[in-house]
């Protein structure tokens, strides 16, 4: 059941968050069409259970959590074909090259696709949406320490894959 005003409020949420939600969906799924489906589905679910949103200031996190659940639901039917073991990161430079090369958004997407979802989501949330570790822990319903360790490992993986010379990547037999 909905009550008067819900329509307007949900439309305000769309206005405020649709772009961020889409970007999050894109980084999660890696495909524009899927990202759009996820965005629409997330808002539809948000509308259906709008009454569960207690604090409107937490709407963003709430929407992101809904979208992630939609994504996980779809994922369940599929295998995460690309995911590799995060330990398989090769050498991580302690010091990064100077100056740090720009991270190419598309290259970033390729590497994100290689990371298991439970590591990828906190990473995206942290860098993309400026959620605090605590927000992320709350959203994913895992302890803070888990978020930190997943982030650290995911980041190490990214660093190794993004910053090693392209030739080295080619040698790993990808692309």
């Amino acid at each position: 059941m909905r009550w008067p005003g819900t329509k307007r409020k949900i439309e305000q949420l769309v206005q405020a968050h649709y772009a961020a939600l889409y970007r999050f969906a894109f980084r999660l799924s890696g495909a524009a069409s899927e990202a759009e489906d996820l965005t629409q589905e997330a808002f539809c679910q948000a509308q259906a259970k709008f009454g569960q949103l207690r604090d409107v200031h937490k709407a963003r996190g709430w929407l992101f959590a809904i979208l992630r659940n939609v994504y996980l639901h779809k994922l369940r039917d599929r295998k995460t074909a690309n995911a590799v073991a995060l330990d398989d990161v090769g050498d991580i430079p302690d010091r990064l090259p100077e100056p740090l090369p720009d991270i190419e958004p598309q290259r970033l997407q390729v590497v994100l696709g290689e990371i298991p979802e439970s590591f990828r989501t906190p990473l995206i949330l942290f860098y993309f949406e400026d959620f605090s570790y605590r927000d992320i822990a709350e959203q994913l319903e895992v302890p803070l320490g888990t978020v930190m360790s997943r982030l650290a490992r995911a980041k190490a993986f990214l660093k190794a894959r993004l910053l090693v010379p392209v030739a080295a990547n080619a040698a790993r037999g990808e692309e």
Binding site: Y18, A19, Y22, R23, E36, I103, E104, P105, Y127, F128
Partner: peptide
Amino acid sequence: DALAAAMPRVPVPSGLK
């Protein structure tokens, strides 16, 4: 900083809203 800059660089399709 570099990751935070790259992460949101996703073009949003027109008409999505």
